[in-house]
Nucleic acid binder design. Sequence first.
RNA 1: GGUCCUGUAACUCAGCCUGGAUAGAGUGCUGGCCUUCUAAGCCAGAAGCCGAGGGUUCAAAUCCCUCCAGGAUCACCA
Length: 553
Amino acid sequence: MQFENDIRVLLAQYLPSSTMELAALLQTPTDSEHGDYAIPCFAFAKQLQKSPQEIAYELAQTITHPDIAEARAIGPYINIYLTTQARAKQAFQTTLQQPKTNKKVLIEFPSPNTNKPLHLGHLRNMLLGEATARILEMNGNTVIRVNLNNDRGIHICKSMLAYDLYANNQTPQEAGIKSDHFVGKWYVEYAKQQAQQPELQEQAQKLLRLWEQKDERTLELWKKLDAWAKQGFKETYTELGIFFDKEYNEHEFYEQAKQFVQEAEQNGIFTRDEQGNTIAELGALGKKVVLRADGTAVYSTQDIGLAKLKQQDYAPDEQIYVVGDEQKHYFTQLFAIFDQLQMKDKRHHLSYGMISLPSGKMKSREGNVVDCDELLAEMRRLAETELTTRYPELDVQEVQHRAKTIGYAALKFYMLKYDPKTGFVYDAQESISLEGETAPYIQYAIARIHSILQEQQPTNQNDYSQYTTPEDITLLRTITKTKDVIVQAGEQYKPHYIARHAITLAQAFTAYYHTHKILGVAHTNERLHLIKKTQEILKELLNLLGIDALEEM
RNA sequence: GGUCCUGUAACUCAGCCUGGAUAGAGUGCUGGCCUUCUAAGCCAGAAGCCGAGGGUUCAAAUCCCUCCAGGAUCACCA
């Protein structure tokens, strides 16, 4: 920002700047009374042989700038107050979309197994992945979203086996069950049956061998269930507004991945252990098996092969993996292997903490998982109940539209407002809450602005000198800050910065709204401009989180 | 045992990267506000030795060390 540079130049004239980190000195005060910017003067005391108070006083005299109304020394601090015009100008000229960089970022999520439906953990994964993608796009990057279907292996064969034995060729349509849930039903059935008949384990193994030998009947069976699983996932992705540029399927590249690992071994990058497994020697990180002795693939085989494929397909500058933090160690090892393979792109494991339930950890086998589709349905129902009690006259179509928008918004925001790195306890009651730090609170602010703007639109004129009240000032400053927040969120892969800022901005608006009448007053036009800008930013912030706004609610 | 994460108000969390002016928000609680732009809202209040101890610094919730408590991880599992 030009203004901030100007300040630094002014400071440099007064200070022995050689050792001064001027950039760090211009800070935003926590208390809005303390101005738009503040400079603490403690750090200069030693060099100048004066007290911080004296320095602040002297320095405050030297700071003159057309955009500064006052530079006031308060104790050891200089508080800088912008002119009303400059402050308003800054806010109204705020643009969030940054110019395109040349950077291409590839982000992979949620990479499910195709043997059971998506659950709450996948939901956090998808929401984080999509929000991060949008934030990076806003910061000027080209983002490629890819998904990896773990669609082969013993776990897949288990649901295939149970289906084959007990389903009588039933289809999801016949069963009246969403297709991925139908596949999951047979996975659960397998687990149940296997407890009684341990020999099923061998049968599943046999099925895997048949699959790898491309046995026709086995492949037919696999194709059927595979299509159902993926179709079901796709419906959920669409429901959440998530679309991939490419979906990689393990069954399509696992042979290639093995080959690639073998070639790397021949080139001396990998070695063998006593059992004949191909391994990567990672020094302090230990050894990592990258291919089993019997030639079958392990997870790292897939990831190594896939990384190679991604390079060929997109040549990204950076790759992001959205995966739970229980795999942190694995990714440290994997990235070390990438280094050995001379892969030069930047890599980031966007890890997130596990969601636990009040009853404890989620475990698929114990059935205490929260199903993603059911959760979405639950959110729609709850929002619908809320709407029909509030507005009994609303027609059914409109109720359903709003219920979906509000319910999903509440859920998404609830999942995104936490720092990704921390786990949290999923509180169903709180997630459906429509009050407080929630998406509906923000949507409500947007809807209120909409209804005012329906009454009257601002003109092309905007007199910046009219934004003088404390509420004006807070709102303008919050708007101006938005760009920095988005940059930070992108650099640190932390979508919750966006969520928090959206709440702050919505709060600033509601405070404004309750203090000042907007229509039919002296500065109506300026106020309309201000709320319109606020609405624009709020919508953008929600959009970054994958959340839709409503015009009325 | 090694590594990583967490510990802030009764509860759920933000702030820690990049140290600064009386530590913030939501929920819950107490009290007030709908004849006026949507009360899914607003205002006010009570509520904190920022896990403990030490160190660095003019200044520490924030940086460093030790300890305590909880969690994750250290397989050819995912």
